[in-house]
Amino acid sequence: MARFSGKVVLISGGARGQGAAEARQIVAEGGRVVLGDVLEAEGQALAAELGAAARFLRQDVTRAEDWAAAVALAEREFGGLHGLVNNAGIYRPLPLMQTDAAHWERHFEVNQLGCFLGMQAVVPVMERGGGGSIVNISSTAGLRGSPNAIAYSSTKWALRGMTKAAAVDLAPKQIRVNSVHPGPIDTEMVKVWSNEQRTKRLSQIPLGRMGTAEDVARVVLFLLSDEAAYVTGAEIAVDGGASL
């Protein structure tokens, strides 16, 4: 039997990059996905590619009502919800002294508040279904200091703590919560780097290459699956050794 047969997973920021890679792999293994994103054209195109096993809705993760709509869509179209990937996030690098309150608050709203609202939104339906799995996408910037990224790093460190607190709170409901910490992954998010910055980051990776969205997706799928049934509150770096 396919690993995700009968399972439904909600992926925020699911229109492209890591979220899209996760969606493709889940559907390939028999699952169904609800894709939430503000990138409507890309999200609709991915849902069309994946066919009957996928639904897309426009989702602003900073709005509780958008989370409620995503959960309702999963229940209405697929009959329940078994997994959540809090994948949506922004990365707009600035050093400490160039970061103003608005820049800080925007990172907080998308990266941290969005994750909090997502976890709250899915718990009732997961509990009714007998449990589930939540995967919060943090970063190696949540494991170590990261240059020129005070706002981003703060939110990713916060996700690390939120994951552990939620894992304790939700264990009696049979809902597992884990965090994944990607390093430099070759997606749209890192196109803000100059060639010099990219070369420097590559030189710091023991495995000698940038990661791919598929590298991250494979770890996320493990944590969503029953293969990780005794794993909760864990943090897994997917970074080629960059955080060593």
Score class of each variant (00 low, 15 high):
2 A>R: 13
3 R>C: 06
6 G>Q: 06
6 G>A: 09
7 K>Q: 15
9 V>H: 04
9 V>L: 12
10 L>T: 03
13 G>N: 12
14 G>F: 05
14 G>E: 05
16 R>V: 09
19 G>T: 07
20 A>P: 10
20 A>R: 10
21 A>I: 10
24 R>P: 11
26 I>T: 09
28 A>C: 09
33 V>L: 11
33 V>I: 03
36 G>L: 07
37 D>N: 06
38 V>K: 14
41 A>F: 04
43 G>T: 11
43 G>F: 08
44 Q>V: 13
47 A>L: 02
48 A>H: 06
48 A>N: 10
52 A>M: 02
52 A>Y: 00
53 A>I: 05
55 R>Y: 04
58 R>V: 11
59 Q>Y: 04
59 Q>G: 08
60 D>V: 07
60 D>I: 06
62 T>E: 13
66 D>G: 14
66 D>V: 07
70 A>F: 04
71 V>W: 01
72 A>W: 03
73 L>G: 09
76 R>K: 13
77 E>D: 15
80 G>A: 07
80 G>T: 09
82 H>D: 15
84 L>R: 03
85 V>W: 05
88 A>R: 04
89 G>S: 04
90 I>S: 02
92 R>E: 14
92 R>Q: 14
93 P>A: 07
94 L>K: 13
95 P>D: 14
96 L>P: 10
97 M>T: 06
98 Q>G: 11
98 Q>S: 13
100 D>R: 08
100 D>L: 01
101 A>E: 14
101 A>G: 09
101 A>C: 05
103 H>E: 13
104 W>M: 14
105 E>F: 07
105 E>P: 07
109 E>S: 13
109 E>V: 00
110 V>D: 09
113 L>K: 15
113 L>R: 15
113 L>D: 01
114 G>S: 11
116 F>Y: 13
121 A>P: 05
122 V>N: 00
123 V>S: 00
123 V>H: 02
123 V>Q: 01
126 M>P: 00
133 S>P: 06
135 V>T: 13
136 N>I: 05
140 T>V: 15
140 T>A: 08
141 A>P: 00
142 G>P: 10
145 G>A: 14
145 G>T: 11
146 S>M: 04
149 A>F: 05
150 I>Y: 00
154 S>K: 08
156 K>C: 03
157 W>N: 03
161 G>W: 08
162 M>N: 10
162 M>T: 10
164 K>A: 11
164 K>L: 11
164 K>T: 12
165 A>S: 15
165 A>Y: 04
167 A>C: 11
169 D>R: 08
171 A>C: 09
175 I>N: 01
176 R>S: 02
179 S>W: 05
183 G>D: 10
183 G>L: 07
185 I>A: 12
188 E>W: 05
188 E>D: 15
192 V>D: 11
194 S>H: 02
196 E>G: 03
196 E>F: 00
198 R>I: 08
201 R>K: 14
203 S>H: 03
205 I>Q: 02
206 P>D: 09
207 L>I: 10
209 R>N: 03
210 M>Y: 12
210 M>A: 14
215 D>K: 07
215 D>L: 11
220 V>Q: 10
222 F>W: 10
225 S>E: 09
226 D>G: 15
227 E>W: 01
227 E>F: 00
228 A>I: 07
229 A>E: 14
233 G>Q: 02
235 E>I: 06
235 E>R: 04
236 I>T: 12
237 A>K: 01
237 A>I: 02
241 G>D: 06
241 G>E: 02
242 A>D: 13
244 L>I: 14
